[in-house]
Write a protein that binds this DNA or RNA. Structure first.
Lengths: 123, 123
DNA sequence: TTTTATAGATTACAGTTGTAGCTTACAATT
DNA sequence: AATTGTAAGCTACAACTGTAATCTATAAAA
């Protein structure tokens, strides 16, 4: 189930806060994109069609909720990237990142701390 | 300059080895995708049009070469993902990854080593 | 009860993508 | 010189995307 760029914008609104109804989504969209209301309606409809969001409640006041969580989505996305561009090798992807992104000393420190905490959960 | 999924397949061939000419690309594509030769020609044409690959040499034996390196492409991609899904916060993206991917102890060790080496380049 | 505002449905339309067929020009072969 | 194989060019066409206008039904307002 592929979610397009524009559709993602709507998903993000819902991930930030849901359920939400149309007026609310229209309102919150205005803060970031200059879309006509129709556009939002179309995107909602397509997302419901794709099964990416669920619609509940009564006609005229439907509530929209994401059907996949932000967490899931991000996990899948990173896995896809890892698979598609790093031969599924997560470590390689990390290395690449550290190497290319020239993280600051603080950032590197933070990461080390994270890793340390991570290892504690193992033997 | 957006490169589509199918186009990426062709880019990957070229990133692995280039310059390459059409017969070679057709041959190498057969190993992974069941595409008609026409499809490859179309994708090449579109990629040249988009400026993603360069064409040199004589008509009838053009050589194709990527115009962006694999490295650049991956950097841009990861930055895009970081920006679009982690508020541009690379560290957060890493954390998420470490947290969600349940890396093995060895992998975590590797990463720590990498980070350590990374910090050495800083003061 | 009539009017009005509007959520949601339907239709639109150009650009992109996935996938491929048909045409042309020319280098190599006969 | 005639034939042929095939890069490269041109055309095709349906599905998906980005973006929106128009229509319809109904809850709220007057």
């Amino acid at each position: 189930m592929r979610i397009s760029e524009s559709e993602l914008e709507v998903m993000k609104l819902l991930w930030e806060k849901s359920p939400a109804d149309l007026p609310e989504l229209i309102e919150r969209t205005k803060q970031r994109r200059d879309w006509d209301e129709s556009t939002i309606k179309t995107l909602l409809r397509r997302l419901v069609g794709k099964g990416a969001i669920r619609r509940t409640g009564e006609r005229r006041s439907y509530q929209y909720t994401p059907a996949i969580s932000f967490r899931e989505y991000r996990v899948d996305l990173l896995r896809h990237v890892a698979k598609s561009f790093f031969g599924s090798n997560l470590v390689e992807m990390f290395c690449f990142f550290v190497r290319e992104e020239k993280l600051s000393a603080e950032e590197l420190g933070e990461l080390e701390a994270i890793l340390k905490k991570g290892s504690e959960n193992h033997d």
